[in-house]
Amino acid sequence: MGRFDEARFALEAMSGGKNTLLMDDMGLPSVMVRIPCFRWSEVYEEGEDTVCSAFIVDGKVKDSIYISKYLNVVERGRAYSLPDRDPAHTITIDDAREACARKGPGWHLMSNAEWAALAHWCRKNGTLPRGNTNAGRDVTAVHEHGVLAPPSGIGAGKHPEARTLTGSGPDAWSHDWTAAGITDLVGNVWDMVSGLRLVDGEIQIIPDNDSAMNVDESEKSPLWRAVDTSGNLVAPGSPNTYKYDGVNPGSPDDTAPLVPGGVRLGTSVRQPQYTGPRTDADYFAWTMMPFRSMAADVAPHVLLKALGLYPLSERLGGDNFFVRNYGERLPLRGGSWLDGASAGLWELYLRDSRSWIFPDVGFRAAYVEL
């Protein structure tokens, strides 16, 4: 037995098969959590009796997916899931995707489909995790804390950096409330996810979990699909596709004001957050709201609820939804050490462009056997 084979055997034996070591194309390990395939109807009340989309890649059903147990670090240009490290941060989503893809076939930036699958699983099993949501501690359980990482010196605006070392929090910070779970999904640093974006308010996705194949998710990619009110995946800009419309009139101010009221789900954008003349409007007016409070002008298709893009019910805690419904916006999930009670598995950030970097934004790789 080789050194890594012995370590894998010990890890699998200790975790009851839930954790394992997977090697990349350089023979270097990541600690991964195996998630067996399940159906949507098994994890939420309105779910269709079909295989959860996180387990469908290129039209084929996978018996399991593997999610990084820890927020990733980057070494030798590749992403790794390792304990007791300062998680990678201040990196663009495209660079994170590349760090995952470099590891070899099947490795990819965790997708929104995979994130949503975990969120529904945790809700169904009563294990919605806590985390580093208040400068190293959980905001609702202040006795729970992790080990603070050394500050990077990059700074986080007016807020001191307060990342915790990967996996250094208690079991309640993992997805199944055990030592074998996926850690730091809530708080610490936001998770960038693939397979989802917003373009001028229109919801666009990569079908199923095809993001696991590292398909083209560039700004001009022809693979993006909008969702129409019948649940069909159609070309962006098609009639009757779902969009996030502002509740209140937007602002022409170019100093990034908060527009009150949040958004409503609809099929048109009559009230963009920014109404000024600038065409380089990456970081102007925006809005936010509790995710659970979102209303709709049209019936939300079950697919939007499955993918965590429309609330299942009002019983989703205080998780926030941030949005700019103009330009291209890439997704972050789960919140950070700055977000307090608004952080959670349903918190969604569709506010910034693909070039956005910040010390409270990180990522994790996932793996599917192709």
Rank of each mutant, 00 (worst) to 15 (best):
N240D: 12
W224D: 01
A226Y: 14
N248K: 15
L223R: 13
S238V: 03
Y242H: 07
D253Y: 14
D253W: 15
A212H: 12
A256G: 01
E217S: 05
D216K: 15
D253E: 11
D228W: 12
Y242M: 08
T241C: 14
T255P: 01
T241F: 14
K243R: 15
P249I: 02
T241I: 10
V227N: 03
D254W: 12
S221C: 06
N240Y: 13
S211E: 05
S230R: 13
A226S: 15
S230H: 10
L223V: 01
T229I: 15
T255C: 09
G246S: 07
K243C: 08
N214V: 04
L223M: 06
A226K: 12
V215D: 02
P222M: 06
D210L: 05
P249K: 15
K243M: 13
P260K: 15
N232G: 06
E219A: 11
V227L: 15
A226T: 07
N232Y: 09
L258S: 04
Y244L: 09
D228L: 12
P236G: 02
P249G: 04
V234R: 01
S230Q: 10
G246E: 08
V227H: 05
S221L: 10
G237Y: 13
P252L: 10
S211K: 03
D210G: 02
K220E: 05
N214F: 11
K243W: 09
K243I: 02
T255R: 15
P257R: 00
D254A: 10
P260W: 15
E219Y: 15
S221P: 07
N214M: 05
